[in-house]
Nucleic acid binder design. Structure first.
Lengths: 195, 195
DNA sequence: CGTCTATTTGAATGTACTCAAAAGCGGTGG
DNA sequence: CCACCGCTTTTGAGTACATTCAAATAGACG
């Protein structure tokens, strides 16, 4: 049930058995069908989610109604609208399942209590967010310094597993290009990787 | 001397006098001349920097030799190459002063010791990085969903103070466009804001 | 004052977009 | 199980935004 999330945490901090028990006591689990949302823009994001199975996406819808993927989260990844969660203000992101999925989640009061009961978790989440920040900052640089072809190559090198299971449309949305463009880029890419 | 950094910290955590003293004991200060670097790509980033005065930039140089600004840091902001600092691996970013500046900094062993001596700092840096992550994630979305004009408007709304003191070239590099394009965008912008 | 860099402006080019239409694929109900 | 419907992907043609290259002007610094 909780093997994956406990292993995820053990990469950063070591828990005593009773600390593990306490942590598990704040967790909830939910199964999601493809396209089912856990968060809609405008709602307050009350939970932080860990993906136990499947794949979720966090995306923003702009004024023109276009979707832009902020983050994909497959097994062993965390997701949520951090700003909304922290400040209890309306979310800017939507989060839904791209495949049938299972998430483990907990609410903010539980997390605040966890920080007090088991202060090591301050350290854990600090490191988690540090890694997320580093990856996102790198993505900014890549978005402004590479053209669409390069960003696609970069994506499939970095996330080869995701490339396999994500629809083209979603990858295009993540890369900041239209599905039409990505379709062309892909067919070029395949052509060049045959000869 | 340390008023600004202490006030920055007090926004997130409350320190006892002896905790404040301990924190101050790990700090160093350095004055920088315009264009002076505190970090070059390839070096290991041994320090985390707080800008006490002036303005710094963290930038990446791509294969073609083009510079891309990851972050500006004016008074009361933090900067560094977090990945390099955390993992003691070669930095991908360069950091230099855009104006004559003064930074307060500390090294990683001191920080690790600080986390042990004053665990509240785990919380402080968690919150600091959370905010940085949120801002950077938002920037990703804006970079892919807006055209250059919109990104520029967005920039001057969000960082009106920076707009004043940064050279056009640096802003262009941050926005991911050429100086020529930003020059045209600006002259259009001024035209439209007269009528 | 002279040099070096930053900014502006112009013209031609290119990358990625929009709009349109056809083909492919998956899920649903008969 | 198959047929249909809706959504995704592909492909084509024309367009727009931003780039590149070039040259002139302005500004900063020694």
């Amino acid at each position: 049930m909780h093997e994956l999330i406990l292993e995820n945490i053990s990469r950063f901090i070591q828990l005593e058995p009773q600390e593990t028990d306490y942590f598990i006591s704040i967790l909830h689990t939910k199964k999601l069908r493809k396209r089912q949302h856990v968060l809609h823009e405008g709602e307050i994001c009350r939970y932080e989610y860990f993906v136990n199975k499947g794949c979720l996406r966090a995306y923003h819808v702009d004024d023109k109604g276009l979707e832009h993927v902020a983050q994909f989260a497959i097994e062993d990844w965390w997701t949520g609208d951090m700003y909304s969660f922290l400040t209890s203000t309306p979310a800017r992101l939507n989060i839904d399942a791209i495949e049938d999925s299972e998430v483990i989640y907990f609410d903010k009061p539980s997390l605040e209590k966890l920080y007090i009961e088991v202060p090591k978790f301050e350290r854990f989440f600090r490191m988690l967010v540090q890694n997320a920040f580093i990856a996102t900052q790198r993505r900014v640089i890549e978005t402004v310094s590479m053209n669409a072809d390069q960003r696609y190559c970069n994506f499939i090198e970095r996330y080869p597993k995701m490339e396999q299971r994500l629809p083209l449309k979603q990858i295009a949305s993540y890369l900041g290009i239209t599905p039409e463009s990505l379709s062309r880029i892909r067919s070029n890419y395949i052509k060049n990787h045959k000869g």
